[in-house]
């Protein structure tokens, strides 16, 4: 398959060699919801710069607005005030430059693995179906599922399903990958394999990744930066730069050390707010 990348010519090779990514700017973004006549501020004045190809993890307890921010970046929802820019362009709607991966796999059960990975590709112009199929097969190979190309979704394990979802999000070659607790429902061993593979794929495909999780160790294992959110109203409290060498192993003691610093910071913010977890 690696040879496919080298030997194939024309559009498919060009498609696979291009590794676009975006700079994200979140400028004074707030989001309020009204429920039963009461107003809730989910996100309060968020300002954030994310560099091209940066891997950023958003952590915080549930209700801190981190998933809401992800939906805003995806364009599935719009901010009450403020603007989000990708490469300088304001976000108004979902776009192929930003793909989203959900906690539930959200794969289509009426399509096989290849069909799912092809779904987004089919909406991408400038490629014919044979070329799309080749591109899809490359991404299925990239997530290690080439033996399951024609399997039905229900035949796959939870970890494999998330791999398919990852391939489906990568296939249209987005600039930004948005991941909403994608590994939350998986067992520890499966997750560890995915941490390693996701880091490898990120290094290879150079996407800007925004990854939401409530697991601080997971965030430290994956992110270049870890942003700590706290709720009521949702705000970014601290911004940690993680300088550990790649590929990182979640069981590495250095990683636990960094995690414990962040965990302590989170507890302090929650205590200050009087929020009991």
């Amino acid at each position: 398959m690696q040879s496919l990348l080298n030997s194939s010519h024309g559009k498919v090779a060009a498609e696979l060699r291009s590794v676009p990514s975006s700079k994200l700017v979140i400028d004074k973004v707030s989001k309020t919801f009204t429920r039963n006549g009461k107003e809730f501020t989910v996100l309060d004045d968020i300002n954030l710069h994310i560099e091209e190809g940066e891997f950023v993890c958003l952590v915080g307890p549930s209700g801190c607005g981190k998933s809401t921010l992800l939906n805003l970046i995806a364009g599935l929802d719009s901010p009450t005030s403020g603007t989000i820019y990708t490469n300088g362009n304001p976000v108004y709607a979902p776009g192929r430059d930003r793909m989203m991966m959900f906690q539930e796999h959200a794969l289509f059960p009426w399509l096989d693995v290849l069909g799912n990975v092809m779904f987004g590709l089919k909406l991408k112009p400038n490629l014919n179906d044979a070329e799309r199929r080749e591109v899809a097969k490359y991404y299925i190979y990239l997530v290690g599922l080439e033996r399951f190309t024609h399997s039905a979704i229900h035949e796959l394990s939870g970890g494999m399903r998330q791999r398919v979802a990852l391939a489906r999000s990568l296939a249209p070659n987005p600039n930004v990958l948005l991941m909403d607790e994608p590994f939350g429902a998986l067992d520890a061993l499966t997750r560890e394999n995915l941490y390693r593979d996701l880091q490898k794929i990120w290094q290879q495909r150079k996407k800007t990744i925004v990854f939401v999780t409530h697991n601080i160790r997971e965030a430290v294992c994956l992110g270049d930066r870890v942003l700590l959110f706290s709720p009521n109203p949702g705000k970014i409290r601290e911004d940690f730069k993680i300088d550990l060498p790649r590929l990182r192993d979640i069981n590495n003691p250095n990683l636990s050390e960094v995690s414990s610093v962040i965990t302590a910071a989170l507890k302090q913010h929650l205590d200050a707010k009087g929020v009991a977890e």
Binding site: L76, M100, F102, A106, F108, L111, F119, G120, R168, P172
Partner: peptide
């Protein structure tokens, strides 16, 4: 979530009906 996933991949309107909602 099927519709949200489809929307992020660029599907909308009639395309979503034919390729996501009806199946």
């Amino acid at each position: 979530i099927y519709i949200r996933a489809a929307r992020t991949m660029g599907s909308k309107g009639l395309h979503t009906w034919i390729y996501v909602i009806m199946p």
